[in-house]
Design a protein around this nucleic acid. Structure first.
Length: 891
DNA sequence: GATCCGACAGGCG
DNA sequence: CGCCTGTCGGATC
């Protein structure tokens, strides 16, 4: 929804629409379906029997009332069950002079002159699917400005030949300067409206001389003294500051572009949030990102989660302790001025901007405290914070220009805040040196050149670097990985973000510098942990605070689908306390390990044999068939009715979904010797051919080789008797892993792990709380789901050697659990193991089985999952030690 | 030959 | 559109 257009439409409705059409036009403006509105007009949808009234289920109650007081009318409607039973979202009454409205969901109300309706368009945005909770933290000024810019950008691209990097860079600079001017004329840097008024009155309507005009103007902004120029140019103040220092071309512009520029003057630029706006702008110049504007910018909430524990809380504490002491307060000031903040993946600079604003607020507090105790010395408060304290690296040229610009805008906003408190502030113009934002690849630049470690400074590194897992890394990124992480064994399994952790640790070595990043949680789970983190630990660096997994979220229309963690790292010797955050909880813990658990440091390595006396677990059968070897019940039926012998080649197939939700699925399962016969059935032959084609098309060499036997899955494993099944990905909410026990007629796919013909008692181990706790602690995750693995989770699971008698006893419990499941054979496994719906009998059977399994470890019962995990980690280490020495652990 | 993972992806209410 | 929960097969060792 284009908010600028919406606002315009509403204002024209108010001006021109006749009274009968008013409400329908209004609904149309919010993009409600035209056909529904037509039927509403005809009366089909109108639930009201009264004249001058309209009730549209779930959407609207509308009444025209020209005699009574509108307040009484709307209150009455809001208490009228005949109206409310249709659940209208909005109640609106009007006499076409004033308009009153109530949002029945939020109880917000509106009481305005009808002419003010367009300014209040946001009130009815829920009609367009935008809830107030969504809009609340979202500045509509940002969206509207970004939309305007997008329109302008599109015209410039059409009218100008922009292809080379240099041309693109020129355009980026131009947009950045234009933005500055809009902002400047709305916030007192220029005269109010000076920029757009000058364009309106001194350039041709067709836009033909606008290009030259802007080039001239931008040049003048860089000149300190003017004389010969005409007055309308001379009146602009001297800006400088690098923004206008170098002469760049301006693009050709046309009538429409000129109009957009002039119209932009009426937007609310002073309401712009430089942090978020920058991210939206980025989407303007990358048209592929338009649909998800700002998907990857970090929300202010998450930025605070990084900077507060990293340095802000410490500064606040110091300020608290300094209250009443001029000396101590002066120390806080000098500490503020010696801070250096460095974001090596800064995007459009939102971390730096938020940090800058927070430091300014702190500085204001310090000055207030100083004025209180020594008013004579501190009557003239003058901010000493400088943009040059902020450092950044950004790959994208436009984003890096935006970051520089946004820092200036933030500086001006903070100057205004300063002025509000102290009555005066340093002048914004001429612009001072900006932030040290470098455009380039952070993995290839020398960070010490970007942000030199000067004596007496206190440096913090922070940000939200890019997450790219191995399969998605570009050739370029793979090269970066090799350069930064190449010395680490199996580094190719790591996420791209590890480059930033490595480089930060290198930068931080032998200093008291601290760093913290928002990261994908996958580097703290599964296989990446033991590949990556020992390298950081060996540099004597450790996490000193961490946020456990939380779902990524910001105000973008479409959020990125990823679950994040935040990790703060510094030299071990600099840590005095460790804070572990989970959701809204904080606790001080003795240790934060690389899994971000409050346990001792462990690294669970992949291994391909079992550390305990347990049978081999493998992966289910992988098809790599483009879907052609799988059959729905209907497809299976089509084949079996076409040929009487075809059922010989069809088997029931089970992956995680089929197992958990009792879904029926079949597959072709053909032995080499039967191939000729199978091929004689046309429906089967067709599928085999399609499989071959699909395999030949694959980028993967292994898949291409498989094209030689397209009648089969890549793997062809089955059991003689029974199969234990563990879903590879499954919900983390369950209190027990849903383990399957299948007979030998089933084929299991690679969506599940399997133990073929293993001892029955193993079922009890896999189902146990002990194993679940271990799994939660060590396995990889799909977001927050369990991504079970054999080489990390199962093969490393410590379980004592037990006697035959104990095995028999565990088996009894297994049959107990299976019996309990059988009692509810109509239910799916997902229902049975839903923590809210689990039948009592099954829960009890599992509980007894848990106790039996736990007695294998020790006599004393476990009292908490933390205790269980601690015990398992300890036993794991002992078993690894013992294995090295070639002995067995006594349990 | 074996397998871990997804700035996800698909279904449902 | 937000919530819930696991497909499929590439990239890696």
């Amino acid at each position: 929804m284009d908010l600028n257009k919406l606002e315009q439409k509403i204002s024209s409705i108010v001006e021109t629409a006749n009274h009968d059409e008013f409400i329908y036009e209004l609904l149309l403006a919010y993009d409600l379906p035209r056909s529904s509105i037509t039927r509403l007009k005809k009366g089909d949808y109108n639930q009201s029997k009264n004249a001058n009234e309209l009730i549209w289920k779930k959407n609207l109650f509308f009444k025209v009332e020209e005699k009574q007081d509108l307040h009484l009318v709307i209150d009455e409607a809001n208490n009228n069950n005949e109206i409310l039973k249709h659940h209208p979202r909005f109640l609106i009454v009007t006499d076409f002079e004033r308009l009153l409205a109530v949002d029945t969901k939020t109880s917000d109300s509106l009481d305005i002159a009808l002419t003010e309706l367009s300014e209040n368009y946001a009130f009815f945005l829920p009609w367009a699917g935008m809830e107030k909770t969504q809009i609340q933290n979202l500045n509509l000024a940002d969206i509207k400005a970004a939309e305007k810019l997008a329109q302008l950008y599109d015209i410039i691209i059409q009218e100008n030949h922009i292809e080379s990097d240099q041309e693109r860079h020129g355009l980026n600079i131009f947009l950045s300067r234009l933005l500055f001017c809009f902002f400047a004329e709305d916030t007192g840097i220029f005269e109010k409206g000076q920029f757009t008024n000058a364009i309106a009155s001194h350039t041709q309507e067709d836009g033909s001389d606008l290009q030259d005009y802007l080039i001239t103007l931008f040049n003048i902004l860089n000149v300190k003294t003017r004389d010969k120029q005409p007055k309308h140019l001379k009146d602009f103040p001297y800006v400088n500051g690098g923004l206008f220092a170098v002469e760049y071309p301006a693009p050709r512009l046309n009538t429409k572009a000129r109009k957009i520029i002039i119209d932009s003057g009426s937007l609310d630029w002073k309401e712009i949030n430089p942090d978020i706006f920058g991210s939206m702008l980025q989407a303007v110049v990358h048209s592929d990102q338009r649909s998800n504007m700002g998907m990857h910018y970090t929300s202010v909430v998450n930025i605070m989660k990084v900077i507060e524990p990293l340095f802000l809380n410490d500064l606040r504490e110091q300020l608290e302790k300094a209250q009443g002491s001029e000396n101590k307060l002066k120390k806080v000031l000098s500490r503020l001025y010696n801070l250096r903040l460095f974001d090596p993946a800064c995007g459009s600079g939102n971390f730096l901007i938020i940090a800058y604003k927070e430091l300014c607020r702190l500085e204001i507090e310090v000055f207030q405290a100083l004025q209180e105790i020594a008013p004579l010395n501190w009557s003239l408060a003058k901010s000493g914070l400088k943009l040059t304290q902020f450092y950044g690296i950004e790959l994208d040229d436009f984003a890096h220009e935006t970051a520089k610009l946004s820092l200036w805008l933030a500086e001006h906003q903070m100057n205004l805040a300063f002025k509000e408190v102290f009555g005066s502030a340093k002048p914004t113009l001429p612009l001072q040196d900006g932030g040290n934002i470098v455009c380039g690849n952070a993995t290839r630049l020398d960070w010490e050149k970007v942000c030199p470690k000067e004596q007496g400074t206190e440096i913090y590194i922070m940000g939200n670097p890019p997450y790219v897992w191995s399969n998605d890394q570009s050739t370029e990124q793979k090269l970066d990985m090799k350069n930064i992480l190449g010395d680490i064994k199996s580094y190719k399994y790591l996420d791209y973000i590890c480059c930033w952790f490595r480089l930060s640790s290198n930068y931080t070595t032998d200093t008291n510098i601290k760093y913290a990043f928002v990261s994908t949680n996958s580097i703290t789970q599964g296989q990446q942990v033991s590949i990556f983190w020992p390298n950081i630990y060996s540099m004597k660096q450790k996490p000193f605070f961490a946020h456990q997994s939380f779902k990524w979220g910001n105000n973008a229309k479409h959020n990125a689908g990823v679950t994040c963690v935040i990790i703060g790292i510094c030299s071990e010797s600099d840590i005095n306390k460790k804070l572990l955050y989970s959701n809204d909880n904080v606790r001080t813990v003795k240790n934060i390990n690389a899994y971000l658990l409050p346990n001792k440091d462990v690294f669970i390595n992949k291994r391909n044999t079992q550390i305990s006396q347990l049978p081999k677990m493998t992966y289910g059968n992988k098809a790599v068939d483009g879907g052609n070897l799988f059959l729905t019940p209907k497809e299976k039926n089509d084949i079996t009715t076409s040929s009487s012998k075809s059922h010989l080649f069809i088997k029931r197939v089970v992956g995680a979904t089929e197992f958990l939700y009792s879904k029926e699925r079949w597959c072709l399962w053909i032995k080499d010797a039967e191939l000729a016969y199978a091929n004689s059935i046309p429906l089967i032959e067709e599928r085999i051919n399609q499989t071959k084609l699909s395999r030949l098309k694959s980028k993967d060499k292994g898949a291409q080789l498989l094209a030689a036997r397209p009648h089969q899955f890549r793997d062809t494993n089955t059991s003689l008797n029974h199969t234990l099944l563990i879903p590879s990905a499954s919900s983390e909410r369950r209190t027990h892993l849903p383990i399957g026990m299948l007979d030998n007629t089933y084929i299991v796919t690679n969506r599940a792990h399997v133990i073929y013909d293993g001892d029955i008692f193993v079922f009890s181990i896999l189902s146990s709380r002990m194993h679940l706790v271990w799994t939660h602690g060590t396995a990889g995750r799909l977001e927050s789901r369990i991504n079970y693995s054999s080489s990390i989770c199962y093969n490393n699971f410590p379980f004592p050697d037990i006697s035959e008698a104990q095995k028999l006893m565990l088996e009894d419990h297994v049959f107990n659990v299976l019996d309990e499941r059988e009692k509810h054979s109509e239910k799916t496994m997902a229902e049975l193991y839903d923590p809210d719906k689990m039948p009592d009998g099954l829960r009890q059977a599992h509980h007894e089985m848990d106790l039996a399994v736990e007695r294998c470890y020790r006599k004393k019962p476990f009292t908490s999952d933390e205790e269980r995990l601690e015990y398992l980690f300890k036993l794991y280490e002992e078993m690894i030690e013992a294995e090295k020495k070639g002995i067995k652990v006594k349990t």
